[in-house]
Design a protein around this nucleic acid. Structure first.
Lengths: 142, 142
DNA sequence: TCAAATCTGTACTATTTAGTCAAGATTAAA
DNA sequence: TTTAATCTTGACTAAATAGTACAGATTTGA
Protein backbone atom coordinates (compact mmCIF):
# COMPACT_ATOMS: atom_id res chain seq x y z
CA UNK A 1 0.00 0.00 0.00
CA UNK A 2 1.61 3.17 -1.21
CA UNK A 3 1.05 6.86 -1.51
CA UNK A 4 1.47 8.23 -5.02
CA UNK A 5 4.03 10.95 -5.57
CA UNK A 6 1.18 13.24 -6.55
CA UNK A 7 -0.31 12.85 -3.11
CA UNK A 8 2.98 13.43 -1.35
CA UNK A 9 4.13 16.35 -3.47
CA UNK A 10 0.64 17.79 -3.68
CA UNK A 11 0.21 18.01 0.05
CA UNK A 12 3.56 19.74 0.32
CA UNK A 13 2.52 22.23 -2.35
CA UNK A 14 -0.73 23.02 -0.59
CA UNK A 15 1.11 23.55 2.66
CA UNK A 16 3.51 25.93 0.94
CA UNK A 17 0.56 27.92 -0.30
CA UNK A 18 -1.04 27.84 3.13
CA UNK A 19 2.10 29.13 4.77
CA UNK A 20 2.61 31.93 2.27
CA UNK A 21 1.56 35.11 4.02
CA UNK A 22 1.42 37.09 0.78
CA UNK A 23 -1.95 38.38 -0.36
CA UNK A 24 -1.14 37.76 -4.02
CA UNK A 25 -0.32 34.20 -3.19
CA UNK A 26 2.74 32.25 -4.14
CA UNK A 27 3.94 31.41 -7.63
CA UNK A 28 4.66 28.05 -9.19
CA UNK A 29 8.26 29.14 -9.43
CA UNK A 30 8.48 29.74 -5.69
CA UNK A 31 6.71 26.52 -4.72
CA UNK A 32 8.93 24.61 -7.10
CA UNK A 33 12.07 26.14 -5.61
CA UNK A 34 11.00 25.63 -2.03
CA UNK A 35 9.95 22.03 -2.50
CA UNK A 36 12.61 20.94 -4.95
CA UNK A 37 9.99 19.78 -7.45
CA UNK A 38 10.27 20.81 -11.12
CA UNK A 39 8.16 23.77 -12.23
CA UNK A 40 6.41 21.67 -14.84
CA UNK A 41 5.40 18.98 -12.41
CA UNK A 42 4.44 21.52 -9.78
CA UNK A 43 2.18 23.16 -12.36
CA UNK A 44 0.59 19.84 -13.21
CA UNK A 45 -0.17 19.07 -9.60
CA UNK A 46 -1.52 22.56 -8.93
CA UNK A 47 -3.84 22.15 -11.87
CA UNK A 48 -5.40 19.12 -10.23
CA UNK A 49 -5.75 21.00 -6.97
CA UNK A 50 -7.36 23.91 -8.77
CA UNK A 51 -9.83 21.68 -10.64
CA UNK A 52 -10.72 20.20 -7.27
CA UNK A 53 -11.33 23.69 -5.90
CA UNK A 54 -8.70 23.42 -3.22
CA UNK A 55 -6.73 26.39 -4.50
CA UNK A 56 -7.46 29.50 -6.53
CA UNK A 57 -5.15 30.90 -9.16
CA UNK A 58 -4.57 34.31 -10.62
CA UNK A 59 -2.76 34.79 -13.90
CA UNK A 60 -0.56 37.59 -15.05
CA UNK A 61 2.22 39.67 -13.66
CA UNK A 62 1.17 39.40 -10.02
CA UNK A 63 -0.39 36.01 -10.38
CA UNK A 64 -0.04 33.04 -8.10
CA UNK A 65 -1.92 30.59 -5.96
CA UNK A 66 -3.90 30.98 -2.75
CA UNK A 67 -5.96 28.50 -0.79
CA UNK A 68 -9.65 28.34 -1.61
CA UNK A 69 -10.44 28.24 2.12
CA UNK A 70 -8.69 28.80 5.43
CA UNK A 71 -6.18 26.14 6.49
CA UNK A 72 -8.35 25.30 9.50
CA UNK A 73 -11.14 24.34 7.14
CA UNK A 74 -9.16 22.02 4.90
CA UNK A 75 -8.63 18.53 6.25
CA UNK A 76 -5.68 16.66 4.79
CA UNK A 77 -8.08 14.03 3.49
CA UNK A 78 -9.48 16.49 0.94
CA UNK A 79 -6.05 17.06 -0.53
CA UNK A 80 -5.04 13.43 -0.55
CA UNK A 81 -8.34 12.29 -2.05
CA UNK A 82 -8.16 14.93 -4.76
CA UNK A 83 -4.74 13.73 -5.85
CA UNK A 84 -4.94 10.01 -5.34
CA UNK A 85 -8.50 8.92 -4.80
CA UNK A 86 -9.82 6.62 -2.12
CA UNK A 87 -8.33 3.27 -1.30
CA UNK A 88 -11.70 1.58 -1.45
CA UNK A 89 -13.96 3.04 -4.13
CA UNK A 90 -17.34 1.98 -5.38
CA UNK A 91 -15.94 0.08 -8.36
CA UNK A 92 -13.51 -1.87 -6.20
CA UNK A 93 -15.12 -5.29 -6.38
CA UNK A 94 -15.75 -5.15 -10.12
CA UNK A 95 -12.32 -3.83 -10.92
CA UNK A 96 -10.46 -6.78 -9.46
CA UNK A 97 -12.67 -9.52 -10.85
CA UNK A 98 -11.70 -9.50 -14.49
CA UNK A 99 -14.14 -12.24 -15.35
CA UNK A 100 -16.97 -10.16 -14.00
CA UNK A 101 -19.43 -12.74 -12.79
CA UNK A 102 -18.02 -13.96 -9.52
CA UNK A 103 -18.36 -10.89 -7.36
CA UNK A 104 -19.07 -11.42 -3.75
CA UNK A 105 -20.38 -14.92 -4.12
CA UNK A 106 -17.65 -17.00 -2.50
CA UNK A 107 -17.62 -16.06 1.10
CA UNK A 108 -14.16 -14.58 1.43
CA UNK A 109 -14.79 -11.91 -1.15
CA UNK A 110 -17.22 -10.16 1.12
CA UNK A 111 -14.98 -10.40 4.13
CA UNK A 112 -12.20 -8.97 2.02
CA UNK A 113 -14.40 -6.10 1.00
CA UNK A 114 -15.05 -5.48 4.66
CA UNK A 115 -11.36 -5.66 5.37
CA UNK A 116 -10.38 -3.10 2.75
CA UNK A 117 -13.24 -0.89 3.74
CA UNK A 118 -12.13 -0.93 7.35
CA UNK A 119 -8.61 0.00 6.28
CA UNK A 120 -10.15 2.87 4.37
CA UNK A 121 -12.01 3.98 7.48
CA UNK A 122 -8.89 3.83 9.62
CA UNK A 123 -7.02 6.01 7.14
CA UNK A 124 -9.89 8.46 6.87
CA UNK A 125 -10.10 8.78 10.63
CA UNK A 126 -6.53 9.99 10.69
CA UNK A 127 -6.72 12.26 7.66
CA UNK A 128 -10.12 13.78 8.33
CA UNK A 129 -9.06 14.90 11.76
CA UNK A 130 -5.90 16.68 10.71
CA UNK A 131 -6.22 20.04 8.99
CA UNK A 132 -3.59 21.97 7.09
CA UNK A 133 -3.44 24.34 10.06
CA UNK A 134 -2.71 21.44 12.39
CA UNK A 135 0.24 20.46 10.28
CA UNK A 136 1.54 24.01 10.10
CA UNK A 137 1.23 24.25 13.87
CA UNK A 138 2.54 20.73 14.34
CA UNK A 139 -0.54 20.21 16.43
CA UNK A 140 -1.09 16.63 16.89
CA UNK A 141 -2.40 13.57 18.11
CA UNK A 142 0.02 12.43 15.42
CA UNK B 1 -3.62 5.99 -1.64
CA UNK B 2 -4.10 2.68 -3.38
CA UNK B 3 -3.57 -1.01 -2.95
CA UNK B 4 -1.56 -2.61 -5.74
CA UNK B 5 -3.18 -5.43 -7.67
CA UNK B 6 -0.47 -7.71 -6.33
CA UNK B 7 -1.66 -7.05 -2.82
CA UNK B 8 -5.29 -7.60 -3.67
CA UNK B 9 -4.80 -10.69 -5.83
CA UNK B 10 -2.11 -12.05 -3.54
CA UNK B 11 -4.30 -12.00 -0.47
CA UNK B 12 -7.01 -13.78 -2.41
CA UNK B 13 -4.53 -16.43 -3.52
CA UNK B 14 -3.33 -17.00 0.03
CA UNK B 15 -6.89 -17.36 1.22
CA UNK B 16 -7.59 -19.91 -1.49
CA UNK B 17 -4.63 -21.91 -0.30
CA UNK B 18 -5.75 -21.55 3.30
CA UNK B 19 -9.22 -22.79 2.49
CA UNK B 20 -8.00 -25.76 0.50
CA UNK B 21 -8.47 -28.76 2.73
CA UNK B 22 -6.24 -30.97 0.58
CA UNK B 23 -3.04 -32.26 2.05
CA UNK B 24 -1.18 -31.92 -1.24
CA UNK B 25 -2.27 -28.33 -1.40
CA UNK B 26 -3.83 -26.53 -4.29
CA UNK B 27 -2.35 -25.98 -7.73
CA UNK B 28 -1.74 -22.76 -9.61
CA UNK B 29 -4.30 -23.96 -12.11
CA UNK B 30 -6.97 -24.29 -9.43
CA UNK B 31 -6.20 -20.98 -7.77
CA UNK B 32 -6.21 -19.29 -11.15
CA UNK B 33 -9.59 -20.79 -12.03
CA UNK B 34 -11.17 -20.01 -8.69
CA UNK B 35 -9.99 -16.43 -8.60
CA UNK B 36 -10.27 -15.57 -12.26
CA UNK B 37 -6.63 -14.53 -12.45
CA UNK B 38 -4.40 -15.83 -15.28
CA UNK B 39 -2.18 -18.80 -14.49
CA UNK B 40 0.94 -16.87 -15.39
CA UNK B 41 0.13 -13.97 -13.12
CA UNK B 42 -0.98 -16.28 -10.35
CA UNK B 43 2.38 -18.05 -10.63
CA UNK B 44 4.23 -14.76 -10.42
CA UNK B 45 2.38 -13.72 -7.29
CA UNK B 46 2.84 -17.12 -5.65
CA UNK B 47 6.56 -16.87 -6.30
CA UNK B 48 6.70 -13.68 -4.25
CA UNK B 49 4.71 -15.32 -1.49
CA UNK B 50 7.04 -18.31 -1.54
CA UNK B 51 10.18 -16.17 -1.41
CA UNK B 52 8.62 -14.44 1.58
CA UNK B 53 8.06 -17.78 3.24
CA UNK B 54 4.33 -17.40 3.43
CA UNK B 55 3.64 -20.50 1.35
CA UNK B 56 5.45 -23.72 0.55
CA UNK B 57 5.47 -25.36 -2.84
CA UNK B 58 5.88 -28.89 -4.07
CA UNK B 59 6.71 -29.66 -7.69
CA UNK B 60 5.74 -32.55 -9.85
CA UNK B 61 2.68 -34.58 -10.50
CA UNK B 62 1.08 -34.06 -7.13
CA UNK B 63 2.56 -30.66 -6.56
CA UNK B 64 0.87 -27.55 -5.30
CA UNK B 65 0.91 -24.91 -2.65
CA UNK B 66 0.22 -25.00 1.07
CA UNK B 67 0.50 -22.36 3.75
CA UNK B 68 3.81 -22.18 5.59
CA UNK B 69 1.90 -21.79 8.87
CA UNK B 70 -1.63 -22.15 10.19
CA UNK B 71 -4.12 -19.50 9.13
CA UNK B 72 -4.48 -18.41 12.75
CA UNK B 73 -0.81 -17.52 12.80
CA UNK B 74 -0.72 -15.43 9.64
CA UNK B 75 -1.92 -11.86 10.06
CA UNK B 76 -3.07 -10.16 6.88
CA UNK B 77 -0.34 -7.57 7.35
CA UNK B 78 2.32 -10.16 6.55
CA UNK B 79 0.75 -10.94 3.21
CA UNK B 80 0.13 -7.33 2.28
CA UNK B 81 3.60 -6.22 3.29
CA UNK B 82 5.22 -9.05 1.35
CA UNK B 83 3.43 -8.01 -1.81
CA UNK B 84 3.36 -4.26 -1.56
CA UNK B 85 5.68 -3.03 1.16
CA UNK B 86 4.92 -0.51 3.85
CA UNK B 87 3.36 2.86 3.20
CA UNK B 88 6.01 4.61 5.25
CA UNK B 89 9.43 3.01 4.88
CA UNK B 90 12.81 4.08 6.11
CA UNK B 91 13.82 5.76 2.86
CA UNK B 92 10.61 7.77 2.66
CA UNK B 93 12.04 11.22 3.39
CA UNK B 94 14.98 10.85 1.04
CA UNK B 95 12.95 9.37 -1.74
CA UNK B 96 10.67 12.35 -2.11
CA UNK B 97 13.29 15.06 -1.86
CA UNK B 98 15.01 14.76 -5.21
CA UNK B 99 17.48 17.52 -4.41
CA UNK B 100 18.57 15.63 -1.38
CA UNK B 101 19.62 18.34 0.98
CA UNK B 102 16.44 19.73 2.41
CA UNK B 103 15.15 16.82 4.43
CA UNK B 104 13.29 17.61 7.56
CA UNK B 105 14.59 21.13 7.91
CA UNK B 106 11.53 23.23 7.16
CA UNK B 107 9.07 22.55 9.87
CA UNK B 108 6.25 21.00 7.89
CA UNK B 109 8.42 18.22 6.57
CA UNK B 110 8.67 16.68 9.96
CA UNK B 111 5.00 17.05 10.70
CA UNK B 112 4.31 15.39 7.38
CA UNK B 113 6.57 12.53 8.30
CA UNK B 114 4.59 12.19 11.49
CA UNK B 115 1.38 12.31 9.54
CA UNK B 116 2.32 9.54 7.13
CA UNK B 117 3.72 7.48 9.91
CA UNK B 118 0.50 7.74 11.86
CA UNK B 119 -1.43 6.64 8.79
CA UNK B 120 0.91 3.67 8.61
CA UNK B 121 0.18 2.85 12.22
CA UNK B 122 -3.56 3.06 11.71
CA UNK B 123 -3.35 0.67 8.78
CA UNK B 124 -1.12 -1.73 10.68
CA UNK B 125 -3.49 -1.77 13.62
CA UNK B 126 -6.20 -3.07 11.36
CA UNK B 127 -4.10 -5.55 9.39
CA UNK B 128 -2.07 -6.94 12.27
CA UNK B 129 -5.19 -7.85 14.17
CA UNK B 130 -6.88 -9.78 11.41
CA UNK B 131 -5.58 -13.23 10.57
CA UNK B 132 -6.33 -15.37 7.56
CA UNK B 133 -8.48 -17.52 9.80
CA UNK B 134 -10.51 -14.48 10.85
CA UNK B 135 -11.26 -13.72 7.23
CA UNK B 136 -12.20 -17.28 6.49
CA UNK B 137 -14.53 -17.26 9.50
CA UNK B 138 -15.71 -13.77 8.73
CA UNK B 139 -14.80 -13.01 12.30
CA UNK B 140 -14.58 -9.40 12.78
CA UNK B 141 -14.33 -6.21 14.35
CA UNK B 142 -14.27 -5.35 10.66
C1' DT C 1 0.90 49.06 -27.63
C1' DC C 2 4.41 46.06 -26.13
C1' DA C 3 7.04 43.18 -23.11
C1' DA C 4 7.56 40.51 -19.04
C1' DA C 5 5.73 37.46 -15.62
C1' DT C 6 2.66 34.54 -14.73
C1' DC C 7 -0.82 30.58 -15.22
C1' DT C 8 -3.03 26.83 -18.71
C1' DG C 9 -3.41 22.90 -21.55
C1' DT C 10 -1.95 19.38 -24.44
C1' DA C 11 1.16 16.32 -26.04
C1' DC C 12 5.18 14.06 -25.37
C1' DT C 13 8.92 10.82 -23.01
C1' DA C 14 10.53 7.92 -19.11
C1' DT C 15 9.81 4.84 -15.47
C1' DT C 16 7.23 1.64 -12.87
C1' DT C 17 3.77 -1.74 -12.40
C1' DA C 18 0.79 -5.20 -14.52
C1' DG C 19 0.50 -9.09 -17.01
C1' DT C 20 2.18 -12.80 -20.67
C1' DC C 21 5.10 -16.32 -22.76
C1' DA C 22 8.01 -19.99 -23.28
C1' DA C 23 11.63 -23.03 -22.11
C1' DG C 24 13.38 -25.67 -18.25
C1' DA C 25 13.30 -28.53 -13.77
C1' DT C 26 10.95 -31.83 -10.74
C1' DT C 27 7.93 -35.51 -9.38
C1' DA C 28 4.80 -39.43 -9.86
C1' DA C 29 2.98 -43.00 -12.32
C1' DA C 30 2.33 -45.93 -16.31
C1' DT D 1 12.13 -44.91 -19.25
C1' DT D 2 8.82 -42.12 -20.94
C1' DT D 3 5.01 -39.05 -20.32
C1' DA D 4 2.10 -35.87 -18.09
C1' DA D 5 1.34 -32.62 -14.49
C1' DT D 6 3.18 -29.57 -12.01
C1' DC D 7 6.28 -25.60 -10.26
C1' DT D 8 10.38 -22.09 -11.72
C1' DT D 9 12.65 -18.56 -13.99
C1' DG D 10 13.70 -14.88 -16.92
C1' DA D 11 12.59 -12.21 -20.67
C1' DC D 12 9.16 -10.05 -22.93
C1' DT D 13 4.84 -6.76 -23.89
C1' DA D 14 1.10 -3.64 -22.22
C1' DA D 15 -0.71 -0.22 -19.32
C1' DA D 16 -0.45 3.19 -15.81
C1' DT D 17 2.02 6.66 -13.42
C1' DA D 18 5.68 10.08 -13.18
C1' DG D 19 7.72 13.76 -15.16
C1' DT D 20 8.96 17.15 -19.26
C1' DA D 21 8.34 20.48 -23.11
C1' DC D 22 6.26 23.95 -25.31
C1' DA D 23 3.00 26.95 -27.31
C1' DG D 24 -0.82 29.79 -25.83
C1' DA D 25 -3.67 32.92 -22.71
C1' DT D 26 -3.91 36.56 -19.14
C1' DT D 27 -2.51 40.41 -16.45
C1' DT D 28 0.35 44.31 -15.20
C1' DG D 29 3.02 48.10 -16.07
C1' DA D 30 6.07 50.82 -18.91
Amino acid sequence: MKLSTQEIYGLRCVLRIARSGSKNGITIHEISEDEGISQAYTAKILRILRLNKLVLSERGKHGGYILADTPENIPVSRVVDALGGKLYESDFCYKYHPDGNKQCIPVEYCSLRNLWFSVQKAVDQVLNDVTLQDIIDQNSAL
